[in-house]
Amino acid sequence: MKAAMRAKEKVRLGTIRMALAAIKQIEVDTRESLNDDQAIAVLTKMVKQRRDSIAQYAAAGRDELAQIEADEIQVLEEFLPQPLTEEEIVVLVDASISEMGASSMADMGKVMGSLKPKVMGRADMAAIGAMIREKLK
C-alpha cells in the first residue's frame, strides 16, 4: 500500500484499501483474525464480483466502468496464488474422482468437496464442476 501511495497509483491504492477493508470487516464481524486461506477466499470473492460487474457493464455499454473493474481485478490477482493450468486441473479432478470412488452424478458433491480446499483461489469452481459433470456422465 505504501508503494502505491508513493508511486501515486490511485487505482492500485484504492483497490488495496478496498481489499484490506473487506478483510478487516470480516475480522470485526467474526471477532477473529483471518488466516491466509480465508483471506484468499475473500479476495477470490471480490474478483468474482468484479467479473460479474464487467459483464453487466459491457451489456449496458458502460465500457469505462468495465475497464475500472478490470483494472481492479488485475491488482487483486497479484495477491492471489498462481492459477492452475488446465492440465493440472484435469489431473486433480481425475485423482479426486478415483480417490472418492465416484461413478455417478450422485457422487459429484463428494468430489467437489474434496477438490475445493486444493483449488481454492487457484481455479474457477464452476469450470471444475462442469468438468466433473462431463467425467461422471
Rank of each mutant, 00 (worst) to 15 (best):
M1T: 11
M1P: 01
K2E: 14
K2Y: 09
A4P: 01
R6K: 08
A7L: 10
A7W: 02
K8D: 11
K8Q: 13
E9A: 14
E9H: 09
E9M: 08
E9I: 00
K10V: 13
V11I: 15
V11E: 15
R12E: 15
G14W: 03
I16N: 00
M18G: 00
L20K: 12
L20R: 13
Q25Y: 11
Q25E: 15
I26H: 04
E27T: 07
V28Q: 14
D29W: 04
R31E: 12
E32N: 06
S33M: 12
L34P: 03
L34I: 08
N35Q: 11
N35Y: 06
N35A: 10
D37K: 14
I40C: 06
I40Y: 05
V42F: 05
V42K: 03
K45M: 09
K45R: 12
K48R: 14
K48A: 14
Q49F: 12
Q49E: 15
D52F: 07
D52Y: 07
D52L: 10
S53V: 05
S53D: 13
S53L: 11
S53P: 00
I54P: 01
A55V: 10
A55N: 07
A55T: 10
Q56S: 11
Q56E: 15
Q56F: 05
A58C: 01
A58L: 12
A58V: 13
A58G: 02
A58D: 15
A59R: 10
A60Q: 13
L65P: 00
L65T: 05
A66C: 09
A66S: 13
A66M: 08
Q67W: 02
Q67G: 00
I68F: 04
E69K: 04
A70V: 04
D71R: 09
E72L: 01
I73V: 15
I73F: 06
V75Q: 08
L76M: 08
E77I: 03
E77L: 04
E78N: 13
F79Y: 15
L80I: 05
Q82S: 12
L84F: 12
T85K: 10
T85A: 13
E86N: 09
E87Y: 04
I89P: 00
V91Q: 15
V91N: 11
V93G: 02
V93A: 05
S96G: 07
I97A: 02
I97D: 00
I97V: 12
M100G: 00
M100T: 11
A102Q: 08
S103H: 12
S104W: 02
S104I: 03
S104F: 03
S104H: 08
M105I: 08
D107H: 13
M108K: 14
G109H: 06
K110H: 11
K110G: 12
K110L: 13
M112H: 06
G113H: 05
P117G: 09
K118D: 12
G121P: 03
G121C: 07
R122W: 05
D124Q: 10
D124V: 09
M125H: 03
A126F: 11
A126M: 13
A127R: 14
I128S: 01
I128K: 00
G129N: 02
G129R: 00
A130S: 12
I132L: 06
R133C: 06
E134Y: 09
